Each structure stands twice: as structure tokens, then as C-alpha cells.
Amino acid sequence: MPTLVEVRDYLGVDWVDEATDRRINGLISVADSFMVGSLGVGYPGDDPRVKELSLIIIGQLYDNTDPIAKVSNSIQKMVDDMSLQIRLEMRGDGIEV
């Protein structure tokens, strides 16, 4: 999982702001939960592909915060995927992801 500094660099955030850091930390948490839902508990967090995918997810969520703007296809797909993951995890069928 990328660090706060790595995400700030990826996003081009070159100012220090507590609210922005809270937002980024929240997005790191969302990306981590997405990885658990997608890859399973104990996913290889040090794999560079996982880090890059996490940065892409965080970047998409960070850049698309305008509630009026049309949601891009990639964001809609990500929302659909996350929703499906959560629904499957809530089924409670004893299968650990």
C-alpha cells in the first residue's frame, strides 16, 4: 500500500494541509479495503502492481469529487466493483476473501 508521501507525490499535492492529508489517508484506507475485497486478506502489499493499482484507484477517487459532474466510466466501474465486493462479503457464506 502506498504511503501518504507517495500518494501526495502521485497526485501532485505539494502543499501541507491537514484536511487534504485526512482525505488522502481516507482514500488509502478505501484502496486497502478494495484490495482486500479484490485480492483477499493478506494480499501482497509490497508488490509494485498492487501499489500502482492502489495509486490509480486513489487518484481516480481524489480527482472525481464534483457531485454535479458526470461520473466517468472508470469511476462507475470501480463503484460497481466495490459494491459487488461488499455485497459478496456480507453474504456471510463462510468464504473468506
Rank of each mutant, 00 (worst) to 15 (best):
F34W: 05
S72A: 14
I75C: 05
G45C: 01
G12V: 14
T3C: 15
P67Y: 07
F34L: 01
T65N: 03
M35G: 00
V50A: 08
M1Q: 06
S74A: 15
G40P: 05
G59L: 09
V30Y: 01
E18I: 12
M78E: 07
Y10N: 14
I57N: 04
S54V: 07
G45Y: 03
P48M: 05
V50P: 06
P48R: 04
L39N: 07
D14M: 11
K51P: 00
S72D: 13
D14A: 13
V50T: 06
L39Q: 11
V13I: 15
T65P: 01
N64D: 14
V7F: 12
D93E: 06
I58P: 06
A19H: 06
N25Q: 09
D32G: 02
G59N: 10
I75V: 15
M90G: 09
R23P: 00
L27A: 01
D63Q: 15
Y43M: 06
Y62V: 08
R91I: 08
Q76L: 15
V41Q: 08
L55K: 13
Y10K: 13
I56H: 07
L55W: 09
S38L: 08
D21N: 11
D9F: 13
D47S: 11
S74M: 11
F34V: 08
S54G: 15
D32Q: 03
S74C: 10
V16D: 10
G45M: 08
I57A: 05
P67Q: 12
M90Y: 01
R87V: 09
I57Y: 03
L27Q: 02
I58M: 10
E89W: 04
T20F: 02
L53N: 12
L88R: 12
N73D: 14
D47W: 03
L61H: 10
